[in-house]
Design a protein around this nucleic acid. Sequence first.
DNA 1: ATAATATATGAATATATGAGCATATAGAAA
DNA 2: TTTCTATATGCTCATATATTCATATATTAT
Lengths: 126, 126
Amino acid sequence: MKLQLFLKMLADENRLRIINIIKDNALCVGEIQTILGTQQSNTSKHLDKLKSNQIINYYKEAQRVFYFLNKDLVKNYKFFEDLIYTDLSKSHYSNFDLDRLIRYKNSKIDCDYLKEVNFDFEQLKI
Amino acid sequence: MKLQLFLKMLADENRLRIINIIKDNALCVGEIQTILGTQQSNTSKHLDKLKSNQIINYYKEAQRVFYFLNKDLVKNYKFFEDLIYTDLSKSHYSNFDLDRLIRYKNSKIDCDYLKEVNFDFEQLKI
DNA sequence: ATAATATATGAATATATGAGCATATAGAAA
DNA sequence: TTTCTATATGCTCATATATTCATATATTAT
């Protein structure tokens, strides 16, 4: 992939937010939507772009699709590790999203029960 | 400046090429055009974008405008140094442009005499 | 089989972006 | 002053992009 294209893929708020929350763990599409509060088709399309450009990979479990970061990029692009682990943390949504990710993880709910329990961060006591 | 906007400014081939050749020295607009082989108004507009977002700064000498990289970005964005000094060098135009930059510098021609001598890399013996 | 659910995709729209051309501006030289 | 030169800017076109809505697909559950 060309550096310019890689940067273009990174130069979008929704995609940066996705990368931020899946950089250390795989999440299914529903979890990504729930944590970011973004729309289904919009989320899906950004995931598709990231996937098409091999920035993220995925595996399937039943109808669920779990996405995770392609760690080869960290090896191949020196700047990328600093970007996602240092600079990204200073960006607008980072704390908000990572906080939600942690609270979600602590809730012990997983992708299978996400819709069933009608998960809502506002009602989360944690 | 927002990280997303910074990345967007970097996610363009012409702007990456500009940054690459002015990262260690200031160049006037005419020199940038000559080395990259890009059009006047196009070059000027990309410079304007980079300038408006404080990615580059400038100083004037008579009608000439010299642009140079805003080094504060290297301090403020950890990823940026790796990007411009490591990853960028692997990109398509980098060798071509940096080679031209060196040949231009060796020619001892400067911005003042650039148009006067009708500078042409093809005729350069160096 | 049908119904329900998770995800993907097509179509429509709005907006952004880059490129090229022509022209404007500002400063220098004559 | 007029002329020349370096750079910037306005206009237009073509293309790219993100977003939303509606629908399609695939898998599971009944």
